[in-house]
Write a protein that binds this DNA or RNA. Structure first.
Lengths: 229, 229
DNA sequence: TTACGATCCGGACCGAGGTCCGTTTAATTT
DNA sequence: AAATTAAACGGACCTCGGTCCGGATCGTAA
């Protein structure tokens, strides 16, 4: 059980949680091994789910994630609009599902990949690697990450974020035992927020390299260690 | 000119910027003394603006900021819907205008209030006071702050946020001359984000006192100083 | 006071997210 | 194979944010 501190209280008793939304990511997040998608999904439902994701991917590739409308996805997939919502809950759920693949790859790299991202390296080094990797990933998928951002109330309860927070808190508890790892993990993750990255790079024109340096510096300060070479 | 580092590049050439939205806050942010509201506004326009703000305030007080609809505000103020949008640009503009009063009070306290919030105290002490004050204010107006949060693209370009960022960067440049004050200010301000506060207090049940302690600890780490007593 | 132009008003209109519910279809049981 | 049931389907429908433009109103100048 990772990060039992107070995040467990963050899981409200049976959160509505749209049908499957991101799917299995939250299983991974709970520590169980990866399952395939939806436990049991009727044949037609599974087929439509795939068609919807494929259609959405095409539309995003063509017009960008910001311009994606639910009706357009339904039409492109030759499916009723209701089906889209039943499957993915809402727009952000669909976008999140689109991000699910890279999400899971990243989670796997953290849990069982090679160091320093995966286990085996000292925690501060893993923290550094974590930020750099997440930075790269977010920059790659910026439009999707931005469009997929949930409303303010749900933002912090989304499964992928909870996983990253838990991972950070785990590393922080090791790296800085005298700190409030729960709160510090929020601070660190906030630096890697997609909207912030977008603002600093696209709107302010900062080169990604500077963000990377800033992350290393932040980790050094928070853990009260020497700046990385 | 405060925080000329790279934020100036964050102001795109003539950002659309709804009619008046927050109003004079951005003047303050540019360092000029406070003006009253809109430079010149036709009598009927000014009257309707006041009626709209009053109506919106009533509705928010009664049903909460999340339930506020633009049509309801228009109806309550006995005004056409178009008038609301012309005056405030969009929903978040109206909510921001509702927050403008406390915004300006806070800005004034920072610029010319008594220490340690205002000038006269050492920068680290002012940083501590800044967070504690902002924390208190945000907790007081949580529903409004949450409902007023702009979309991901605009979030970081909103005038009030730019002001707070600039102020933080100013203090940081003094308190930690060897750091990237621009980036660090984003990190610090992220800790005070309304959505995060809401998540930690309302959803995770953390007492505000713990957030306060967390802020003092964060300031200490970022500035590499000793934790405050 | 009247005339005129700029500004503002209002509400019809549109698009998109999200809901509802009668109908269809896949899995299971007999 | 037929019956049964739970789940999925689809698209009409609703709400609400946001736009548009013909008409009303204000400020000003003669």
């Amino acid at each position: 059980m990772l990060y039992a501190g107070f995040m467990s209280a963050a899981l409200p008793p049976s959160f509505p949680m749209p049908p499957d939304a991101v799917g299995p990511s939250e299983l991974l997040q709970l520590g169980t091994g990866a399952e395939e998608d939806e436990p049991c999904l009727r044949a037609d439902a599974a087929r439509n789910r795939a068609r919807l994701l494929e259609a959405a991917g095409r539309l995003v590739a063509e017009h960008g994630a910001a311009a994606l409308t639910m009706e357009a996805v339904a039409a492109e997939a030759r499916v009723g609009k209701g089906t889209v919502f039943r499957r993915f809950g809402d727009r952000t759920g669909l976008l999140a599902a689109l991000l699910d693949h890279s999400e899971r790859k990243f989670q796997a790299a953290l849990l069982s990949g090679p160091p320093p991202l995966g286990p085996g390296a000292p925690p501060v080094e893993r923290l550094r690697a974590f930020g750099c990797a997440l930075l790269r990933r977010s920059i790659d998928e910026l439009d999707l990450q931005l469009a997929a951002e949930p409303s303010a109330e749900r933002r912090h309860t989304a499964a992928p974020r909870r996983f990253l927070l838990g991972h950070l808190a785990l590393l922080l508890r090791e790296a800085v035992p005298d700190g409030d790892s729960g709160l510090l993990s929020h601070t660190l993750l906030a630096y890697l927020d997609a909207a912030l990255i977008h603002h600093l790079t696209a709107q302010c024109g900062l080169p990604p390299e500077r963000l990377r340096t800033g992350w290393l510096d932040l980790v050094a300060r928070v853990t009260r260690t020497d700046p990385a070479v």
